[in-house]
């Protein structure tokens, strides 16, 4: 955040595009894009990173959750110009070299998903929670996941998955 100034953003009325540089899952990418294009569309349509899902488009379901500079963000609420120079982690970026992230393993083994459409966003939200709070209370779990809707599980399997990761202490 070097510069401290106002930026004018022009909508693509004619063929106005901007160049942005982003690090996505550790890889630097230079993109030419309309400035107001939603990040979720860049990820899904331009970069084929379809693990990030789209469901409500207004930040009310969490299916499009990604991490921007370490913070959990709804990628449907962020525009291209706003992520210039940012570092973005999507669900595709959290698999570790040795295999699944312990959160993913816990979701698998505790039945933290059914249709799976909310799962990438949910996993990102859990990751964001445990990165800050490795041993969260029930209230903290609820707060952290309150923006991620799941229609299948009733959250039972998700809660058990989070509790399992906490018990295993892999994020401590």
């Amino acid at each position: 955040m070097g510069e401290s100034r106002a930026v004018t953003v022009n909508q693509p009325t004619e063929d106005k595009t901007i160049d942005i540089t982003v690090v996505i899952n550790g890889k630097e990418q230079h993109l030419q894009t309309e400035p107001t294009k939603r990040l979720v569309d860049i990820l899904r349509n331009d970069l084929d990173l379809t693990g990030t899902k789209i469901s409500c488009g207004i930040g009310r379901c969490g299916a499009c959750s990604v991490m921007i500079n370490g913070n959990l963000i709804n990628s449907c609420l962020v525009m291209a110009y706003q992520v210039d120079q940012a570092s973005i982690t999507t669900i595709e970026g959290i698999v570790r070299e040795e295999g699944l992230d312990p959160i993913q393993t816990a979701f698998l083994e505790e039945g933290g998903f059914q249709c799976g459409y909310c799962t990438p966003g949910m996993v990102m939200a859990v990751k964001s929670l445990l990165a800050d709070t490795p041993n969260p209370t029930e209230e903290q779990i609820k707060t952290a996941l309150s923006g991620n809707l799941c229609r299948c599980t009733g959250y039972g399997g998700i809660i058990r998955a989070v509790q399992r990761v906490i018990e295993e202490g892999t994020y401590l």
């Binding site: 693990g51 990030t52 999507t90 699944l100 998903f113 990438p120």
Partner: peptide, 21 residues
């Protein structure tokens, strides 16, 4: 047992039909 479509779901690699191009 863990369900067969699980891994692709937790990793986001499963292609839903709306993910196709």
């Amino acid at each position: 047992r863990v369900r067969p479509d699980g891994k692709a779901k937790v990793t986001g690699s499963l292609k839903y039909l709306t993910d196709l191009s």
